[in-house]
Design a binder for these strands. Structure first.
Lengths: 155, 155
DNA sequence: TTATATTTGTCCGTATGTATG
DNA sequence: CCATACATACGGACAAATATA
């Protein structure tokens, strides 16, 4: 009798906006991942432009018929991808992307990327969800750049 | 009288493992950040090697005398940094890092990094918290590489 | 193979702090 | 001062997926 145990909940969703229906609690994909995917699409398509508010947690929770935990985790995912910023007292907003400046790398460098830890983020004044570019020069020295402010160009 | 308002709680921590004492609920640093920092240190030092289980949420909650919420948030931070993997039914483990292969980029390319969306992650079979490297060639074509598998080298 | 235990996912409730309007 | 909104933090409960005996 494990089947259709969410049936009643689905029926109770009448009155919820059409877009809310695209979240399926029976899916194998966690609800919070589904909401993150939805919001990410709206951000990347420009439907939610930089600076726009994505809606309060309570509103999203009600609109999509999911719990507060799921909404918070979805927002946490988007923050960890650098797509939104949220802080105490502020509505969660689509993060404006800074212009990238060009940095020329010399010959024979290796270039890699990774996520910074919280110390590095503080030191470089970076938002959550922004990777770093790491350039290792032929002499062994390393240099680290914020990934949303820098674009490298090969010689 | 805001001082020592958690005094009683400290006394009540007798019986908790010594390492647990390194989490201070009175600190301005959130508890979940402190736990994330602790676990990150253990991962980066090799004390928790790739593939190792970091301990269940319930266990960490009990061991450090903090709530499950804080534990989950700490794990979420580490996941977004590409340090651990977790999913339903599986114990949370330290993410194994694959060997990086060298890819030579031609002259005049621009190289940038960003977080992939979930579609890209699925297509490239990438874990959460792993950025991508994006190479734009002089002819305008783009190529995207998983950031933990590829290291670029300038010509 | 089946059954049980473990672990993470999700929901809910409550409370306090911080920041904005 | 008050209302709103998010951040942090605790607690309980159950579901779903996997691990293990």
């Amino acid at each position: 009798m494990a089947t259709r145990q969410y049936g009643a909940r689905c029926v109770s969703q009448r009155g919820v906006k059409a877009e809310a229906m695209s979240i399926d609690p029976r899916s194998h994909t966690p609800v919070y991942v589904q909401l993150a995917d939805l919001l990410r699409d709206q951000i990347e398509s420009g439907e939610l432009p930089p600076g726009a508010r994505i809606g309060s947690e309570a509103r999203l929770s009600q609109e999509y018929g999911i719990g507060r935990d799921a909404v918070r985790m979805a927002i946490s995912v988007l923050r960890s991808e650098g797509l939104v910023t949220s802080s105490r007292g502020h509505p969660t907003q689509v993060r404006p992307r800074p212009e990238r400046r060009l940095v020329e790398v010399p010959s024979g460098c290796t270039i890699s990327t990774r996520m910074p830890n919280s110390n590095e983020r503080r030191q470089m004044d970076m938002d959550e969800g922004v990777p770093v570019l790491e350039v290792r020069y032929p002499d062994g020295k390393k240099q680290t750049f914020p990934g949303d402010e820098v674009e490298l160009i090969s010689p």
